[in-house]
Every structure is written in C-alpha cells, then in structure tokens.
Amino acid sequence: MREIFASMPWWVKWVAVPFIALVVFGGLIFSIVNFVVWLLFKVLVFAALVGGLVYVVRKFMAGSSSRSDW
C-alpha cells in the first residue's frame, strides 16, 4: 500500500483520498455523530429532570417537617 501512494502526487494523498472517504463514509459518520449528540441531549434532559425532582422533594420535605413542629 505504501508503494502505491509513494508514486502519487501530494494532492492525491492529502486531498483526493480524504475527500473520497468523506463521500463514501459521510453518511455513516453523520449518523454516528447525530446519535451521540441525541444521546447526550437525552442524558442532559434526564439529569435536569432528576435534579428538579430532588429539589421539589427536598422543598416539600423541608416544608412538611417545619409544619410538624407545631
């Protein structure tokens, strides 16, 4: 493989081959990046909902314990 590329001009190695790889695998790369972004968004939404639930429960528990002191 190295012998094949050794006789090629620089622009074939550094421009044409990466461009062809992006054309061929571009859809796959986009799908993987899209899935990772979607997954991170879902994780952030989950963390925000759990944090909000913990906040509401603590507020409710603090309010109910001060009422029971009567």
Rank of each mutant, 00 (worst) to 15 (best):
Y55K: 14
L40H: 05
L28S: 02
L44H: 08
V15H: 07
W10D: 15
E3R: 01
I29W: 05
V15M: 09
V37I: 03
A47E: 11
F30S: 07
V56D: 07
S66Y: 14
A21N: 03
A16R: 02
A21L: 02
F46I: 05
A62C: 08
K59V: 04
F35R: 15
G27V: 02
R2A: 02
W70P: 08
S31A: 00
S7L: 07
L39F: 07
K42L: 10
P9A: 03
F41A: 14
F35P: 10
A21Q: 03
N34G: 07
G26N: 01
E3M: 01
M1E: 05
F35H: 15
F25G: 06
M61K: 14
K59Q: 08
V43S: 09
V33E: 05
S64W: 08
V57L: 12
F19I: 01
S31V: 01
V15D: 05
L39Y: 03
I20A: 15
V24Y: 00
L53M: 13
G52V: 00
D69Q: 13
S68F: 07
L40D: 04
A48H: 07
I29Y: 01
W14D: 08
W10Y: 09
V15S: 11
F30N: 03
V36A: 12
Y55Q: 12
V37P: 04
S68L: 11
A16E: 08
F41M: 08
L44Y: 06
I20L: 15
V36Q: 06
S31D: 00
W38Q: 12
V50R: 09
W11Y: 13
I20S: 14
A62R: 11
S68H: 08
P18K: 06
K59C: 00
F19K: 05
I20T: 14
V50M: 07
V33M: 01
L40C: 01
M8Q: 15
L53E: 12
V50N: 04
Y55D: 14
K59D: 07
F30V: 02
A62D: 15
F19R: 02
F5H: 06
L39T: 06
W70Q: 11
A62S: 14
F35Y: 10
S66N: 14
F25C: 02
V56H: 05
A47H: 11
V54Y: 01
V45P: 10
W70L: 13
V54L: 09
K42W: 07
F46S: 06
M1D: 04
S64A: 15
M8W: 11
I29H: 04
N34A: 12
R58W: 10
V24L: 06
I20Y: 15
V54D: 05
G52W: 03
P18G: 05
V23L: 13
W11G: 10
F5C: 07
W10G: 14
A16Y: 10
D69K: 12
E3K: 01
M1L: 13
W14K: 07
